[in-house]
């Protein structure tokens, strides 16, 4: 039963992820990406990580993709306004990404996936996650926070360009 649900979700997530790349209309792409995020959130819930699932939805689907959609709508990109790349570009892009793909396969072929041991099923709950974040990983957590603050200040500075000049 659980395996069946997992496989359904996995197949759906791969299909929607492919549709993100393959659909011609950029707005459709964004919407498929949101669906993909939903399915990944469902996978988190299957792992009993409700907090992660909801935060994933709030941050990615609720905030970041809205901004994506904003930009796309304001630019009004459509199928007919999509710039046509020359075939030389297309061929070189195909070769490069194919080589990257081959490298990844080659790198992963010989390696064995190290299991982390039996995972604690309660680790995804908010109380345990908080304890882990604020006890074991408090320094990386704070550094990440400072990084975000710096990025925010930087964004404000970029936005106020005429003031800096």
């Amino acid at each position: 039963m659980t395996l069946a649900i997992f496989i359904t979700l996995a197949v759906l997530s791969v299909i929607t992820a492919l549709l993100v790349v393959l659909s011609k209309n950029p707005v459709h792409s964004v919407l498929y990406l949101i669906v993909t995020f939903f399915i990944i959130a469902a996978q988190y819930i299957m792992l009993n990580a409700q907090f992660l699932a909801v935060v994933h939805l709030i941050v990615y689907a609720g905030a970041i993709m809205v901004l994506f959609l904003f930009v796309l709508m304001l630019l009004n990109l459509n199928e007919d306004t999509e710039p046509q790349k020359s075939s030389a570009w297309k061929i070189s892009a195909a070769i490069t990404s194919g080589m990257l793909f081959l490298t990844l396969i080659g790198a992963l072929k010989g390696s064995t996936i190290a299991l982390l041991g039996a995972p604690n099923p309660q680790v995804g709950l908010v109380r345990n996650l908080g304890a882990v974040l604020f006890k074991d990983f408090v320094v990386p957590f704070e550094i990440a926070g400072i990084l975000f603050l710096a990025a925010m200040v930087g964004a404000v500075m970029v936005g106020k360009r005429d003031l800096a000049m």
């Binding site: 707005v27 909801v54 939805l57 689907a61 609720g62 809205v66 904003f70």
Partner: peptide
């Protein structure tokens, strides 16, 4: 009674934007 009820509400409130945005666009 999920133990993250408030976050669940915030999550769905933040998704409410999509109906409006898609409809308008």
């Amino acid at each position: 009674d999920i133990n993250i009820g408030i976050l669940y509400i915030m999550g769905f409130v933040s998704l409410g934007v999509y109906g409006i945005m898609i409809g308008g666009w």
